[in-house]
Design a protein around this nucleic acid. Structure first.
Lengths: 133, 133
DNA sequence: GCTTGACCTAGAGTCGGCTCTACTTCGTAG
DNA sequence: CTACGAAGTAGAGCCGACTCTAGGTCAAGC
């Protein structure tokens, strides 16, 4: 174990649900807001801030933002103040896509629910017949 | 052009938004409810029913059902009456997954909306300052 | 002093879902 | 008759996002 501010890659994996492989992959892909510190033996030492950032990245990924776009966003954040408008653009664009995704998903859900209803009725009617015999 | 009940693969591609490649791929994967008919020269001839089925498959795919599971469902339908309970199970399970997906997506949306709001405020405040100068 | 386990790197492999290539066969238009 | 376009087949290739392998370092415990 490391001191209370420093977490090993294994601990971060536990806390975020990502695999250690994925964590190294994300770092290589440049989607960590700050350079990960290294401890003795070249081991990665993560902070709570890294975890917070990762959790946001996980949200972005879950909602379908591709890794390269997360990288672009990360780079803006790394560059510091002055590019908030660009960050906002990326987020708004993604928001739009997520919105569309949700609409689509709802349409699918409606169809599935309709079919489930139909099959349920049918199955029930068969069961009723069997009982009524 | 074929007579009014028969559609070529190109026409089906247009009508469904799938590529002709995807249509052949779907057929090879066994996710067409009925064997596609063949016309002169071995060309595929689709019916309106095929299109309807494809549209449903598209919905299932869009909502994340993997091809092998669509195939399982398709096989049940092809087998005909008597397995409605199994079909219902597949649909219900998928419904559950879609439901979870929607919840997750909503969570992501909430975070994104929160961030967009924050950045918007910030950007507005900068703009206001610039005007006020 | 040897094993174990968590970590390191570089790079190869996997998986799903198409997408594309190469080559052939038609039917129609010029 | 030649060319074109749309179709056919079999199978290779691609892309994204991991995931895993091989081979190595190092500290702690037996």
């Amino acid at each position: 174990m490391l001191d209370d501010m420093g977490l090993s890659i294994g601990q971060v994996a536990e806390r975020t649900g990502l695999s250690v492989h994925a964590l190294r992959f994300y770092e290589k892909e440049g989607i960590l807001a700050r350079q990960v510190q290294r401890g003795p033996g070249g081991r990665r030492v993560y902070t709570q801030q890294d975890i917070d950032w990762l959790r946001m990245c996980i949200m972005l990924r879950m909602s379908g933002m591709p890794v390269p776009e997360i990288r672009r966003y990360t780079e803006l954040v790394r560059q510091g103040d002055g590019n908030e408008l660009q960050r906002l653009d990326i987020l708004k664009e993604h928001q739009e896509r997520v919105q569309q995704q949700m609409v689509q998903l709802q349409e699918c859900m409606d169809l599935i629910t309709y079919k489930v209803g139909k099959y349920q009725d049918y199955v029930n009617s068969i069961a009723a017949k069997a009982v009524g015999q």
